[in-house]
Design a protein around this nucleic acid. Structure first.
Lengths: 345, 345
DNA sequence: GTGAAAGCGCTAACAT
DNA sequence: ATGTTAGCGCTTTCAC
């Protein structure tokens, strides 16, 4: 193999010449468009195979579609996102569409850069996973290109949304702990400052769901929320605070598995045992929650299902940009493991 | 915000008209090309800002570059890859280049599909992370578009490579365990069947490094390798086998953290303690290795550094496609945690 | 049902 | 230093 200048790409013109038809005919066959006889189809397909032709998506995009879906993932590290991605690619598998991802981005500015980059590269549609951008910005994007927003509450007329019911998820955890006999169930939440956005974010919904569930169980007086963040450090700090209470809780519901890991660390440091002295539950059912030494009770979001729905809605919107927007809400499920048990007698 | 048909995109023609210059002038300013006076630059830039113009990458690609780098990650779940990605995006941050990722792909066929998709979408260059494709296929890709291969040994004349020294990494683990007093140190490897490829894969290098290190320490007679896979299940099965030995090892070096997790599980099931009865080490220093309840001794690959180098080499190769290929080898580092200690007396 | 020709937004020769 | 013009590979009218 020589490091030579790459030989010119096979183009639609080559195919047309080789099949002795017009370029229009080839184009029609490529797009399964109306107006190509079966014989024509056969001829063209043979030529395509023989020459090893592949359409150049960038050039197609100049007139029609690029057959490319852009997915923005805020944080590639979050073990919840691969599931969504699997769902998306799975649904798109036997279509002509290909998925490309923008790299992880933290914060509004990076997010804007990535979404712009995706639009500039001619994506036919966008799936935005748990975006932090303002609603106005999301609607602006959606006005430019078909868009589905995933993992964020708050509906819009211009984009479709798919999300898990975080309120219900929180209720599952609280219900499980209460059924085990716990009353002093504390919650560690992720603190979000922006007031215009907060109601739409999953973390707020989880904290909300926790409060509602406690109230419904007559445990209103026991409501105890610590605001840190959905990180290991956040969980650690939150647990430290909770363990210092005069009457410490018998169970901690961390809003995310990452935070739950920090809780486990703080508890171990304090010389307490899980679940003997304290029950701990997380959220997201991330891959490490299942690991033997951890075995964390958690809430499983139907990630794959979320992705599948997002892809479906996006295809529908690409087909008809004026169709009314759709909101899909999916139900999470509790996964009980070894970090939760009855409170100490 | 109306779900109206998106208003026509601002083009270079609009900018030219607004700035009362030619489209060529605008193009030159966009590319910082030679032949634009400072006044011209200023005029054009003002027009760009005023109109909110952004170049359409697909159209640029038809003639010149798309300013897009494609990254193929075999498995988005592997917690080692985000580091590489961070390195790449970090290096590209203040260039005009943007990174897009192909979705995770398992196996040769999916890999081919993704790389083709990236090429069809006009990527200016490709970073292939731990590809499983045949060498011929890699060289074919590299002949088509500038390519850097990451995390795979075996050099080529047409593509650059960046990888960690896995032999050295394995030696670090073996050396550490031997220094603690271990002699019966077993290894769990990932079994790769294809003989044409095996020597280039990191798993083979790690097993090789293990054997060499054992030999160098005079522990040749103690060499004990179990072939399963770099998964939790693989580690579990491998550990089961090792624990059933008449003389069971006092330390297990799993070729990947995932496998080490399976080992921990099997050990716990057998009623043994870590590191009291058995020391366990992994490889990759994945994010969960640091988690409190796990605290796994592991080998840290300089992921960020790998990514940075890959991006640098790719930019150099895009600038000069005929430059001789470069091989970068980086050194891993041992991270000692609580799963390794002296063997039982 | 089929093909000729215009043009998508941009860059690169080639004038001037 | 600046502008004119011919494409890049494809889709899309619009004739036939």
């Amino acid at each position: 193999m020589e490091p030579s200048a790459s030989p010119r790409r096979v183009t639609i013109v080559d195919v047309a010449r080789h099949a002795r038809v017009s370029t229009t005919a080839v184009s029609k066959v490529l797009r399964n468009a109306y107006g190509a006889s079966p014989e024509m189809q056969a001829k063209v397909r043979r030529a395509i195979d023989e020459l090893g032709y592949r359409p150049y998506a960038a050039a197609r995009g100049l007139r029609g579609q690029t057959y490319t879906i852009g997915v923005m993932l805020p944080d590639i590290r979050n073990p919840f996102f691969p599931e969504i991605l699997d769902g998306i690619t799975g649904r798109l598998e036997d279509t002509d569409y290909q998925v490309l991802m923008g790299p992880g981005c933290n914060g509004e500015k990076a997010e804007a850069r990535v979404t712009e980059a995706l639009i500039d590269r001619g994506m036919d549609g966008l799936v935005l996973v748990a975006p932090v951008s303002s609603r106005a910005r999301l609607e602006h994007i959606a006005a430019t290109v078909p868009t589905v927003v995933v993992g964020r509450h708050g509906d819009s007329l211009v984009y479709d949304t798919v999300a898990d019911d975080d309120v219900a998820g929180a209720a599952l955890v609280v219900g499980h702990l209460a059924a085990l006999g716990h009353r002093r169930i504390a919650h560690i939440e992720h603190h979000e400052t922006d007031p215009t956005r907060i109601a739409e974010m999953p973390n707020a919904q989880r904290a909300d769901g926790y409060r509602k569930a406690m109230r419904n169980l007559g445990l209103e007086a026991e409501i105890d929320v610590v605001s840190t963040s959905y990180t290991q450090q956040g969980g650690y700090d939150g647990a430290k605070e909770l363990l210092a209470r005069p009457q410490r809780p018998t169970a901690v519901f961390a809003g995310a598995d990452f935070a739950a890991m920090g809780v486990l660390e703080a508890v171990a440091e304090a010389g307490l045992s899980v679940p003997g002295d304290l029950s701990v539950a997380g959220y997201d059912n991330t891959s490490f929650a299942a690991l033997g030494p951890i075995s964390l009770t958690s809430v499983d979001q139907a990630g794959r299902e979320i992705g599948r729905n997002a892809a479906r809605l996006l295809l529908e919107r690409i087909a008809d940009r004026r169709k009314p927007s759709v909101q899909v809400r999916l139900s999470p499920a509790l996964v009980t493991r070894r970090t939760t048990a009855a409170p100490p007698a």
